[in-house]
Write a protein that binds this DNA or RNA. Structure first.
Length: 269
DNA sequence: ATGGTTGTAAGACAA
């Protein structure tokens, strides 16, 4: 069977619910993981999203900031929310594809929203950067003790790890999201736990791949000053099942877009 | 070096 999983930092699920519908209608993924829903749980548009053909939904939100959700055509079991850095931030949610999901049954889905880290890349001067590094340290520790079994980790990791993940490696070396301390930390925690970076597995450097373009760039498409902040990783047992990875760049040109675009992986199980 | 835009939610704050 074919399993498709998408990830998208939606930057407010209520404001952009029509864009969610539009993307689901055209891409038809089996699973869509959202970040930055910016929505407390009692205001989450559950019924509306289920009406788009995704009856199985888990979500964890808070007022104003953060927030994650997983929408699925296939049954989900074992909803879990992990907390990081002793905060109540809604930055992770996970679920497992249920027994009815055929060859995909038992695959764990982990949806992450790593802290952006503020503007100053110095943990002694900037609490938000310190928080980001601590979050990655806890992610590393979790990766080392995670139960074995097939899993897909997606989300806005807010780090562009490789040189060709940004429009200018040299000009971004001191910019939060591409500093060596972040890129090395992300690559280390990924490698230690054995996660396979599916986008680079199929599309290795030197191809440039971006998933985010700042709102502050007046002509984002022409300038193309993007970064690859959104990721889909799989456990090694799934690496050979990865058949395609798609970046829905065109959605950045939609009216009132998110600053991130969806990324989709296709697995042949 | 600075400022550029957006969302939440009602003035900052986060990104």
């Amino acid at each position: 069977m074919r399993l498709t999983v998408s990830t998208w930092n939606i930057n407010s699920v209520r404001l952009r619910i029509d864009l969610v519908r539009r993307f689901l209608d055209e891409a038809k993924p089996d699973v869509l993981c959202l970040q930055e829903t910016k929505c407390p749980d009692d205001r989450f548009p559950l019924k509306e999203l289920q009406g788009f053909g995704y009856p199985h939904v888990v979500f964890a939100g808070q007022k104003g900031y953060n927030g994650v959700a997983i929408l699925s055509r296939l049954p989900l079991v074992t909803r879990e929310v992990m907390s990081f850095c002793e905060r109540q931030d809604a930055r992770h949610i996970s679920a497992v594809l249920g027994p009815e999901a055929g060859a995909a049954a038992g695959i764990a889905l982990h949806d992450f929203y790593v802290p952006a880290g503020g503007d100053v890349p110095d943990a002694t001067l900037n609490d938000k950067f310190a928080h980001k590094l601590s979050f990655m340290d806890e992610l590393r520790a979790w990766g080392g003790r995670r139960p074995s079994g097939p899993a897909i980790l997606v989300g806005d990791l807010n780090v562009a790890p490789l040189e060709h993940d940004v429009w200018s490696h040299k000009q971004l070396l001191d910019v939060v999201s591409h500093t060596p301390i972040e890129t090395e930390r992300l690559e280390t925690l990924r490698g230690e736990a054995g996660w396979v970076d599916t986008m680079r597995h199929l599309r290795p450097p030197p191809e440039k791949i971006f998933t985010w373009w700042s709102y502050r760039s007046p002509d984002w498409a022409a300038a193309d000053k993007g970064r690859r902040l959104d990721h889909i990783w799989v456990t090694p047992d799934l690496a050979d099942t990865v058949k395609a990875v798609t970046v829905a760049r065109h959605t950045r040109a939609w009216e009132k877009p998110s600053d991130h675009v969806p990324v989709t992986v296709e697995l042949e199980l």
